[in-house]
Computed example of a mutant assay.
Amino acid sequence: MKNKFSIGVFDSGYGGLTVFKSIAEQLPQYNYIYFGDNARSPYGDHSFETVYQYTLQCVEWLFAQGCQLVILACNTASAKALRSIQQLDLPKKYPNHRVLGVIRPTAEVVGDFSVNKKIGVMGTRGTVNSNSYPIEIGHFFPEVKVYQQACPMWVPLVENNEHLAGGADYFVNKYVIELLQQSEQIDCILLACTHYPLLVPKLKAFLPAHIKLLSQGDIVAKSLVDYLSRHTEIETSLGKERKRSFYTSGDVNIFNKQASVFLGQELLASQVKLS
């Protein structure tokens, strides 16, 4: 019997669990391995080269665990590492493996949600500085104007479980104001970090009611459904025992506690020590 592969889901920390949750809900039949590089998180302020090296190391670990397909459920990794991995590493070392990101599938549809064709993108410094979203959205929706806002305090708020506390109000409101000052016509905001969906209740309190908020989980999940339908050679190689495994490079007890906030259920992870 041929070996059956799992779908790998990678993030620098916990945020990718929001994407994993949507993927597993829409495609529950497959086996999944989630890996969070919490020991080296956050990735947002690291250089392109550092993020590339960290991401490649984690992707290769997932390959070694039997993942033929890996989703980079991390905007920073997708912005700073995905293209290099796809163009440099896969053809030479892993021609039968695939690595997908979250930026392109989001860019393919985000323009459909804006009437004014003015979209705000809120993300980490790394994602914003990469300029990946204006470039990718421009390929599919050249008529759309993209306004970006870096939100460096949001990931720490979420990862310290302070995202719904009163102390978060200042930094949520601060970045919302800074974004909307760029254009009064913004009618759609993309949360370009997988941590940010946990801030949606706060964001709705500070945003005008007409502005749509887009999280990436469902978008990426729908894109993966389409991808597998078009790549039957990969789909047929995937195991379908509904297995779920979780790993972290950080402290397991902390990961289990924090991950339950993102996933909405308890889990038991194992630790991976990266050299």
Rank of each mutant, 00 (worst) to 15 (best):
C58K: 08
I211G: 02
K222I: 10
Q86C: 06
L224T: 03
M153W: 02
L27V: 11
L179A: 10
E108Y: 04
A221S: 09
V102E: 04
L190I: 12
P134G: 08
S78C: 14
V19G: 04
K240R: 15
I85Y: 00
L90N: 02
N31A: 11
V172S: 07
F141I: 02
I33L: 01
V59A: 03
E143F: 05
F171G: 01
F246V: 08
L213V: 05
F20T: 01
L17A: 06
C193L: 02
V9D: 01
D11G: 04
V70P: 09
K273I: 11
V70Y: 13
V121I: 08
V172G: 07
F171H: 05
V225I: 10
K80Q: 09
V176H: 01
Q182V: 12
P134A: 11
S114N: 14
V261Q: 13
N256L: 12
L62Y: 13
G123Q: 03
K204Q: 14
P28R: 02
I7L: 10
D169K: 12
L62D: 12
L179K: 07
V128G: 00
R244C: 10
H210P: 00
L199V: 13
T194Y: 06
R230W: 05
L198K: 08
I103K: 00
A269C: 09
D187I: 06
E184W: 14
Y170W: 14
E25I: 01
V121D: 01
